[in-house]
């Protein structure tokens, strides 16, 4: 029951991320998405978690729901922008695409041959839609910061795919993956600030000096 509720909320959060123009609400969206996905990893798991498992989940939650969103909010403030006014794909169309993607994820998850012990296909669908939301933000938004948020959303989705399919990697590898994501978003933030200093804007589609 709880997992159904979490999945429903997750679908809504992802749709919200498709449709919002305000960047701070996009950051809140990705934080909430991470929180719900961590919850889902706990709820959908059969059997008790070891204390290492709990520690790792809380660190993941802390990094993805608090540290990274706070870092992004600060980068946003220093860049001095609030909203993405003219995205490459309009918000109404985005929302429509979001609905189609939701349907597609549910359908695709039902098609996969599932191993024993895997969670409800809906959990896999939730992971898929989070990944696709991230990819969509990367290609359809022009502000560098929206793309960084998209990357984080995509990583959130990939992260929950493993518990959804009853795959449990070794802790050291999972920690390494988390570290990579953290450093990755950090370096993206630094480059965004340099872009801001150099160009006075962070519109990626206006960075078009390099082409053939």
């Amino acid at each position: 029951m709880t997992d159904q509720l979490v999945i429903a909320l997750l679908f809504l959060v992802n749709l919200r991320m498709f449709a919002t123009s305000r960047l701070d609400s996009l950051i809140r969206g990705v934080a909430l998405q991470a929180f719900l996905l961590v919850c889902l990893a706990v709820v959908s798991r059969e059997g008790a978690l070891s204390w290492e498992g709990w520690t790792f989940l809380s660190v993941t939650g802390l990094v993805k729901c608090a540290v990274l969103p706070v870092m992004m909010t600060r980068a946003l403030r220093s860049a001095g922008i609030r909203r993405e006014v003219e995205p490459l794909v309009g918000y109404r169309v985005s929302l429509f695409i979001g609905l189609i993607v939701t349907g597609f994820s549910i359908w695709a998850a039902a098609q996969l041959p599932m191993p024993d012990g895997a969670a409800d296909p809906l959990v896999v669908a939730a992971a898929l839609i989070s990944m696709i939301t991230g990819l969509f933000l990367i290609v359809a938004r022009r502000k560098a910061i929206s793309q960084a948020i998209g990357y984080l959303a995509m990583e959130n989705g990939v992260y929950v795919l493993a518990p959804a399919l009853a795959v449990h990697g070794p802790l050291i590898v999972e920690t390494g993956v988390l570290l990579d994501v953290f450093v990755g978003v950090f370096i993206m933030g630094v480059i965004i600030l340099h872009i801001r200093q150099e160009f006075k804007h962070i519109d990626i589609d206006r960075l078009s000096e390099l082409r053939d």
Partner: peptide
């Protein structure tokens, strides 16, 4: 400007 553009594309 060019090297920043390249680095952003590369990283993302």
């Amino acid at each position: 400007s060019r090297s920043l553009e390249a680095a952003w594309k590369y990283l993302l």
